[in-house]
Every structure is written in structure tokens, then in C-alpha cells.
């Protein structure tokens, strides 16, 4: 390749972990730097939106977009970067499926704002003052981005060429993706740049029949490090979560949280997880089944921890206004 790759990184509704994950490629980052120029990376360097706006259409080769879309600024930049980039990569679970921020879809925006601006214990000045999207002051009009009713995935606004899931995507996968892009031999558009297998495939634990007599939370037990966690009654999302992480959580004796999202063809990650987890607790005694499954705390938060914005329902209905 004669010319260097022109890259952009952006963070929307995210924690910054995805950007740190780029740094986690360690010295390999320098190799990337050799073959690529970075045109935009707000978390690392001072770029201006106007510089991006000034670029020609498709000027950038690849944009790595992390974070969900929660406000009008994030949407605007998503559209801008889409226009300027040949390839748009949803980078990390939030951009792919909404991620942790999308759990906010289980609440009304009003509930969230009243908690943040007056309800929470750490709120200072509980007089109910809230930020506005525009306000006139003597010097002119001040604006803030609009807060949307819900958290969205990147794909809800722009066409996404590839998905690189993970919270955050592990360095090997990032480097693999870069190699793929550099090679010029591209997978079909819309592909997920991770294996179409589940975490169980990479999990070294001994697996047997799954019959769970009682569910327990990770802090309540010290699990046997060699046996399947689910068989020990710990809700593990491995059976329905895409591989690619190297099963690193389960190897640290923690259950899979599902950050890689579902495998291809699965319509609703959380629903599929709920199906398998509930079935392991089947009992011919209805009360016993109810009791066992009652031990699963916060199923929506457990099974849709990363995927709510990309799920069938995508959240809770807003409160009726009539």
C-alpha cells in the first residue's frame, strides 16, 4: 500500500474503555502508526469538528466509532464521520448494541433526569435546576446537545460496515481487524469481526448436563475453577455469547457477562440467554421451578447488560401520557 491508512476514532456514549483498549495494543500501536495516520481522536488529541467537516467525502479510510448514541451531538458526529469515511466500524459493545448505557432504556428520560439533577445522594443543590438545550444570555444563544428519549446503537443512524464487539474489544481482535482492513481482502459488509461461535467454545471448563438446583451470584460462592460455572448455579452468558474474547472472564473465575453480543442470526440476545438459563432450572414441581428462577436477580440487567438497544423491545415503554 503506497499511501498510509487514514484513520479516525470517536467516542460517543461510552466510558473511554474502548480508547484505552486501543492503547492496550502496546507496542503494536507503533506499528499501526507506521502504516496509518490518525486524523481524529478526541480522547487523545485536540481535533476540531470543523477540520473533519472540511474533509472530502470518503477521505478517511476507516472510522472506529465507539459508544452508543444518546444525544444529538453524537448523532451529528456519527453522520459526519460516516460521510467522510470509506469504512465505518462500530467499535465496542456500546456502538454495536448499546452497551451498558442502553440499560437506561429501562427508565423514562424524566426518571433519569430527576434522579441525576435532584434525586441522587451526590447531587449538589437539589433545587431542580436542569440544563436546557438553548438559552439566551446577553452575549448570545448558548446551546447544549439534545438528550434523546433512548439510547441507540450506531447502526440506528448510519450504515455500519463492520462490527467489532467487546467491552472493550480485546487487543488481539483490534489488531486482527486492522490486519484484515490493511490486507484489502474484506469480509462481507455487515460482518462481525469475531468468530461465529460462542464463549463456551473457548471456555476450558469441564461441561456436563446442565441442571441447576439453585442460582447463586458470583460473590456468594467461590466456584470450582474447573467446572462449568452455569452448572454451579452461576448465571453465565457464555452459551449464547459470541466468542472472540478468549473466554477471559470465565478463566478469571467470573461468569461471562455477554459483552460480545449474540452469534449471527440470533434476533434477541437476552431472550436467547433467558431461554437457556431458565431451562436449566426446569422442575416438574411448578413451585420449585418458580423458586429457582426467582433466585435470578435482575434478569433484564443480566441478559440485556450489553444488548438492550439492539434487542426486540429495546427498552421499556415510556409512561402513558393520556
Amino acid at each position: 500500500m503506497s499511501e498510509k491508512l487514514k484513520l479516525a476514532f470517536y467516542w460517543a456514549a461510552s466510558c473511554g474503555g474502548c480508547d484505552v483498549a486501543v492503547l492496550d495494543t502496546d507496542e503494536k500501536l507503533l506499528e499501526i502508526a507506521k502504516i496509518a495516520d490518525i486524523y481524529f481522536w478526541p480522547v487523545a488529541m485536540d481535533f476540531k469538528y470543523k477540520d473533519i467537516k472540511a474533509l472530502d467525502k470518503d477521505f478517511l479510510d476507516v472510522c472506529f466509532f465507539n459508544g452508543a448514541v444518546r444525544n444529538s451531538e453524537q448523532e451529528e458526529i456519527a453522520r459526519l464521520l460516516r460521510e467522510k469515511s470509506k469504512l465505518m466500524i462500530a467499535f465496542g459493545s456500546c456502538a454495536c448494541f448499546g452497551g451498558i448505557p442502553a440499560l437506561a432504556n429501562l427508565y423514562d428520560p424524566e426518571e433519569i433526569l430527576s434522579w441525576v439533577y435532584s434525586g441522587s445522594f451526590s447531587t449538589v443543590g437539589k433545587n431542580g435546576t436542569r440544563p436546557l438545550t438553548r438559552v439566551s444570555v446577553p452575549e448570545g444563544e448558548l446551546t447544549l446537545p439534545e438528550f434523546y428519549t433512548a439510547v441507540y446503537t450506531l447502526k440506528d443512524f448510519v450504515e455500519v460496515d463492520y462490527f467489532l464487539p467487546g467491552c472493550p474489544p480485546p487487543p488481539e481482535l483490534i489488531l486482527g481487524a486492522v490486519e484484515t482492513l490493511v490486507s484489502g481482502v474484506l469480509p462481507p459488509r455487515g460482518s462481525v469481526l469475531a468468530p461465529d461461535k460462542t464463549v463456551c467454545d473457548q471456555c476450558p471448563r469441564e461441561k456436563q448436563d446442565k441442571k441447576v438446583a439453585a442460582f447463586r451470584r458470583p460473590h456468594e460462592v467461590i466456584p470450582d475453577p474447573d467446572r462449568c460455572l452455569l452448572e454451579q448455579g452461576i448465571v453465565c452468558c457464555g452459551p449464547g455469547t459470541r466468542a472472540g474474547c478468549g473466554a477471559r472472564c470465565v478463566q478469571a473465575n467470573m461468569p461471562c457477562r455477554g459483552c460480545f453480543g449474540p452469534t449471527d442470526g440470533v434476533v434477541d440476545h437476552g431472550a436467547k440467554l433467558a431461554a437457556v438459563i431458565a431451562t436449566t432450572a426446569t422442575s416438574k414441581d411448578e413451585n420449585e421451578a418458580a423458586e429457582r428462577i426467582g433466585q435470578i436477580v435482575d434478569p433484564a440487567g443480566t441478559f440485556y447488560r450489553f444488548g438492550l438497544a439492539a434487542s426486540l423491545l429495546r427498552g421499556k415503554s415510556l409512561k402513558e401520557e393520556n
Binding site: 429501562l106 431451562t279 426446569t282 434478569p299 440487567g301 421499556k316
Partner: peptide
């Protein structure tokens, strides 16, 4: 029986979805 086990979890999920 499997349908019943799933039903219990579906109920919990639906409750959270309002």
C-alpha cells in the same frame, strides 16, 4: 415443564420491561 420454567423468567423480564 420447560415452557413453565421459561414462563417464570419471561414474567420477570416483562415486569422489568413495564
Amino acid at each position: 415443564y420447560k415452557a413453565y420454567a421459561r414462563k417464570v423468567l419471561i414474567e420477570k423480564l416483562l415486569h422489568q420491561f413495564g
